[in-house]
Computed example of a mutant assay.
Amino acid sequence: MQTASTNICERMDRSQELSEFKPGTMIGCHLCNKSIHEISLLLNIPRSTISDIITKWKQLGTTATQPQGEREKNMLKRTVTNCLQNQ
């Protein structure tokens, strides 16, 4: 049994970014029909983070961080779409 100090996958701080390996592992688990809760327990990552990564992968086809300009464009598109749907 591992103790908290020897656990390889310790809880992330809010300011930490994921390594390149972890999002791929999350997507692999998702493709193997693991639930978000199961993936969270396995990788010791918050469920909200896993949900965000899977959603991003479904929408964009990638888990890579986008350049800032692309994020702003996507946020603008999302805002306009939400406004149009609410009318």
Rank of each mutant, 00 (worst) to 15 (best):
N7F: 06
T49S: 13
E38F: 02
T55C: 13
Q66C: 05
E20W: 14
A4F: 15
T6E: 14
C32G: 07
D13C: 13
L42H: 03
S40E: 06
C29T: 01
Q59A: 03
Q59N: 04
I54K: 03
H37L: 09
Q59M: 03
R71W: 04
Q66I: 08
E20V: 11
I50E: 06
M12P: 10
R71H: 04
T25G: 08
L41D: 04
D52A: 14
R47Q: 03
K77A: 14
T55A: 14
G28M: 10
R78C: 00
K73W: 15
P46E: 14
P23D: 02
E38I: 01
K34E: 00
Q85K: 13
H30D: 03
L18E: 00
S51N: 02
S5G: 13
P23K: 00
G24H: 09
G69N: 05
L31C: 08
H30A: 02
L41F: 07
K73N: 13
G24W: 12
L31A: 09
R14H: 07
T63I: 11
T79L: 06
R78D: 00
G24E: 07
Q68A: 11
M26R: 07
D13P: 11
I54V: 05
G28W: 13
K73I: 15
S19E: 14
L60V: 00
C32W: 08
L18V: 01
A64C: 12
L42R: 02
T3Q: 01
E38Q: 04
I50A: 10
D13R: 11
H30L: 02
I50Q: 07
S48I: 02
I36Q: 01
L84A: 07
K73Q: 13
H30Q: 03
F21P: 08
L76F: 10
T49R: 11
R11N: 12
E10Q: 10
I27C: 04
S19Y: 08
G61P: 01
G61E: 01
T79N: 04
S40P: 10
N86S: 15
K73F: 15
R11Y: 14
T63E: 05
T65F: 05
N7R: 11
S51L: 02
K56F: 03
G69H: 05
N33F: 01
T81A: 15
T63M: 06
F21V: 12
S5R: 13
H30N: 03
S51W: 01
K58I: 02
T3G: 03
Q16L: 10
K73G: 10
S5V: 15
D52P: 04
N86T: 15
Q68N: 06
T49I: 15
I50D: 06
L42Q: 02
Q87I: 13
V80I: 09
A4H: 13
V80L: 04
D52S: 12
E17V: 05
A64K: 13
L18C: 00
I39Q: 03
R71N: 05
I50R: 06
C83L: 15
N7H: 08
Q68L: 09
E10G: 11
I45D: 07
R11V: 12
